[in-house]
Design a protein around this nucleic acid. Structure first.
Length: 856
RNA sequence: GGGCGCUUAGCUCAGUUGGUUAGAGCGCAGCCUUCACACGGCUGAGGUCGAGGGUUCGAGUCCCCCAGCGCCCA
């Protein structure tokens, strides 16, 4: 009886295609809730993912496809490993980019002093003059606009096959996120981990907000050194300093030289008079003074740069702050104790031309006045130097004294460094970025922003009977009231009419830094306070790019360390950047190269995923359509190979590893086992790209060599046992390969899996060695020699310019015993695949493959 | 100035603890329209691993130094 007596084939499409699979399977995954998190899962079985909430203030670009795919591939692996994957998605709709879009889109401006207008509706199109609206109205518009973008983002993710559970979607401005942020803040406050203080603060005069150290960047800018003479108080001559900021002269509180600098050692302890304003200031010593810069002695002003702040703090100098929040010079009285001039009238006259001026106007005025007073030595000298900017700003930062909330980071530096060592970094070298950042911290983390669309601080301040605000005894919101907006909500025990009045209260006007909210992403996504939280926190992995190690990663570690005395996640998987085809960093000007949708439509989601998953963790990768074409070709190959194999199998016959009996087939299973082992360990180490590379390489040689070798047996030629063995091997290998490729090519693998299974491949179990039966200790010992001979046959035919079907009259393989016996073992398949009439394998010391083609 | 990464075939990249003639894909050239696949298959030609020095029986793979590119931080 033939094994083919009653075949019932699987139903396989006549002409399978990869086009259209995204729409089909995205819908099915929705309907079947394939990626839904199991809320009753135990912590041990959960694999939880802390995903970056992308900013939804605009453009999607190919970089998102790249990094989110890398995370998704990992998620899919763990899901197949049987873990209950907690994979939420958030949208960062909070913050400055959204504010600016809303202002322009609707033609509005936020005025936090206005009351909420519940009947307000946004104009159809922006009016010529911006309409002022309350914070709550403004926030509502922000939510309206971001909701549109969120839908577009979600569609992209779904098209790309990102396997998040959409039931777990969140936004950073949602009531939950605001409540979590406010609770986090209040708990920090209760533990004395945050404090408010009036302090010198990095300040952007255009955005009119404080910024934190993490938001700084240095930019090379032209500057000018001015040499300025200060008269010694004892009238024994002059001290010359050099400065790029002569306009700060009125804020000068000291001159400083290096303690080892011989030139100035004798002057330390004496004093000089500032030119123009005639204020007496001491000469002091500090190691940060650079003897090689300028004249080696510098003026300290409050505050020209961050070094001034350090000197001011460490040398306990007085404060003469003159730059206001708008970047203009504030009034000053040189007859006051704060500005003690020896000639107050003259000083006040000089200052008249500066008060109210911008920094650049003041600089010009001061330089003119210095020149007129003969205090400017020589001509100013042009230089270029590094100037600190807010990363989103256009003018150099100023340092303005104002009241801000800070998170204590400096005193936890050592603990935070230890947390960095505890975290498992992928790739490992990214840890250095964290370490150098933490080591370089010189300010506590300022979390106050003088903006509107953000999470407000859940505090008010009492006002005494004289109308003075008491900032030291804030009125705190109760936890069960969160979230609150102190600009419209009222502290317990007060009524709205007391707002701003004596014996009343004042709401904190500021909002939190966006990182103060996103640093709690594990708490937000995990719904801190609910049962869910204990099942997902600390998370298993954080996915993110490297440029936000100093912001998002650092701040998340800080919050978790303070809140839970733990890491927020045990692994971090860092993605690289996408570069344009010319290997430059993608920018808005890169244009269509950065738009993913056309590429998705042209090559398909699996193809783009293939490209993205080929990029190793942390490695920057260029947009490469050639790589996408290869991905598409691989997906098509999966369809066709599956079609061939399933077309040879009988649905009613179950085949297992025990049916694999021929040496060649067993050897192929052994090689497959090695592949499974390597792919699995690669994934466990977050080296998904390696898993892909190995699986892909195996798959191609499997198709090119093994399938070709056993084609005759697969079609039913030969005795029952060898036919069954080939079919069982094809069956097992196809099943394993479809599953190994599933994380990378979720659409095409789901399609072919459903040709012979009812359930999703993405819920199937990750291949294991147990499935393959006993495996030889020497994988490839038979398959490899047989493939070598097969390739030699092809080479002969190719060289003779013949079809690969051309007949071979005689094939003589001589070689070492292991080689010859491998050929004998696989001889029947070689004869069939190579159309060989006579095969002879002989033992010999030298390997020789002699092919005699048929006479034509 | 400090730190990190990169520099391997025309291009894009692998190369895990040092070990036989350095790998893949693309591109290129030639061949084959074979019953899973022309949205295909087969075959082939291309590198001595940025420069120099060192350790070793043996180095792309470890050490030193130099150069270039990129990033992070001062």
């Amino acid at each position: 009886m033939s094994v083919d007596s009653t075949p019932r084939r699987y139903h396989v499409p006549e002409k399978p295609t990869v086009d259209g699979l995204e729409a089909l399977w995205t819908r099915r995954w929705d309907e079947e809730a394939t990626y839904r998190f199991n809320p009753s899962a135990t912590r041990e079985s959960v694999y939880s993912i802390d995903t970056p909430p992308p900013t939804v203030s605009g453009e999607l670009h190919i970089g998102h496809v790249f990094s989110y795919t890398q995370g998704d591939v990992v998620a899919r692996f763990w899901r197949m490993r049987g873990r209950d994957v907690f994979y939420p998605m958030g949208w960062d709709d909070n913050g400055l980019p959204t504010e600016r879009r809303v202002e322009n889109f609707y033609g509005v401006r936020c005025d936090p002093t206005l009351p909420y207008d519940p009947d307000f509706t946004a104009p159809e199109k922006p009016a010529d003059k911006k309409i002022s609206i309350s914070r709550q109205n403004f926030v509502e518009l922000c939510q309206l606009l971001t909701a549109v973008d969120e839908v577009a983002f979600k569609n992209l993710w779904r098209h790309l096959g990102i396997s998040v559970d959409w039931d777990l979607e969140y936004t950073t401005i949602s009531p939950l996120a605001r409540a979590v942020s406010q609770r986090g803040f209040l708990e920090n406050l209760a533990r004395d981990e945050v404090y408010s203080s009036v302090a010198p603060t990095l300040w952007d005069v255009d955005f009119r907000t404080a910024v934190s150290q993490a938001e700084l960047e240095d930019r090379e800018r032209p500057g000018t050194y001015h040499r300025v003479a200060f008269e010694r108080s004892d009238a024994q001559g002059f001290v010359e300093i050099e400065t790029t900021r002569p306009e700060m002269l009125a804020s000068c509180v000291a001159l400083v030289a290096h303690p080892d600098d011989e030139r100035y050692r004798d002057l330390v302890g004496s004093s000089v008079l500032t030119p123009l304003f005639r204020v007496e200031v001491p000469i002091v010593a500090h190691e940060l003074a650079d003897p090689d810069k300028g004249s080696g002695i510098a003026m300290i002003c409050t505050f020209g740069d961050t070094t001034d702040v350090t000197w001011w703090r460490e040398l306990q100098l007085p404060t003469r702050a003159l730059i206001g929040r708008d970047g203009r010079f504030l009034p000053a009285d040189f007859s006051s104790a704060e500005f003690p001039s020896t000639e107050p009238d003259e000083a006040n006259d000089q200052y008249e031309s500066i008060e109210g001026a911008t920094v650049s106007q003041a600089r010009a005025a001061v330089v003119d006045a210095l020149r007129a007073a003969d205090a400017l030595i020589g001509e100013p000298r042009d230089i270029t130097h590094q100037v600190k900017f807010y990363e989103k700003g256009e003018r150099p930062l100023e340092i303005v004294t104002s009241r801000q909330w800070f998170v204590k980071t400096l005193e936890h530096r050592d603990e935070l460094l230890a947390r960095g060592d505890e975290l498992r970094w992928h790739p490992g070298y990214m840890k250095h970025r964290y370490r150098s950042w933490v080591e370089g911290l010189n300010l506590d983390w300022n979390i106050s922003r003088q903006r509107f669309f953000g999470v407000p601080f859940p505090v008010w301040y009492p006002i005494d009977e004289k109308g003075e605000v008491d900032f030291d005894r804030p009125l705190l919101a109760e936890l069960d009231r969160l979230p609150v907006d102190p600009s419209s909500d009222v502290p317990t025990g007060y009524v709205e009419s007391q707002r701003g009045a004596p014996k009343g209260f004042l709401g904190d006007p500021d909002v939190m830094d966006t990182w103060a909210t996103s640093s709690l992403s594990p708490q937000i996504a995990g719904q801190w306070g609910s049962d869910l939280y204990d099942h997902v926190f600390p998370m298993d992995v954080r996915l993110q790019a490297h440029e936000i190690i100093r912001t998002w990663l650092f701040s998340t570690v800080v919050r978790s360390h303070l809140q839970s005395r733990s890491l927020p996640f045990s692994n971090v998987l860092i993605s690289g950047w996408v570069l344009d085809p010319n290997r430059k960093k993608l920018s808005k000007s890169s244009g269509n190269a950065s738009t993913p949708m056309p590429l998705l439509e042209q090559y398909g989601a699996d193809a783009l995923r293939y490209w993205a998953a080929s990029g190793r963790p942390g490695t920057d990768t260029a947009v490469d359509e050639a790589q996408m074409k290869i991905g598409r070709r691989l997906a098509i190959k999966v369809l066709n190979a599956s079609k061939f194999v399933l077309g040879r199998l009988d649905q009613t016959t179950s085949l297992g590893p025990n049916d694999v009996t021929t040496p060649l087939d067993r050897d192929v299973l052994a090689l497959l086992g090695a592949l499974v082992g390597e792919a699995t360990s690669s994934f466990e180490n977050y080296d998904y790209a390696r898993a892909l590379e190995r699986t892909e390489a195996f798959f191609w040689t499997f198709c090119d060599n093994y399938v070709e070798l056993v084609k005759a047996r697969a079609y039913g030629e030969g005795d029952d046992a060898t036919v069954t063995s080939a079919r069982a091997t094809l069956n097992l290998a196809l099943s394993v390969l479809q599953r190994l490729l599933a994380p990378f090519l979720p659409f095409v693998t789901e399609e072919v899996w459903h040709w012979w299974h009812d359930d999703s491949v993405h819920l199937a179990s990750w291949p294991s060695l147990d499935e393959l039966g006993p495996l030889s200790v020497n994988p490839g010992s038979i398959y490899q020699p047989v493939c070598d001979v097969l390739e030699a046959l092809r080479r002969e035919k190719s060289t003779a310019k013949l079809s690969q079907r051309a007949g071979v009259a005689r094939l003589v393989v001589s070689g070492p015993e292991e080689f010859a016996s491998a050929i004998r073992a696989g001889g029947a398949d070689l004869i069939a695949a190579g159309n060989v009439h006579e095969l002879v394998a002989v033992d010999a010391t030298e390997l020789l493959i002699d092919v005699t083609l048929d006479e034509s």
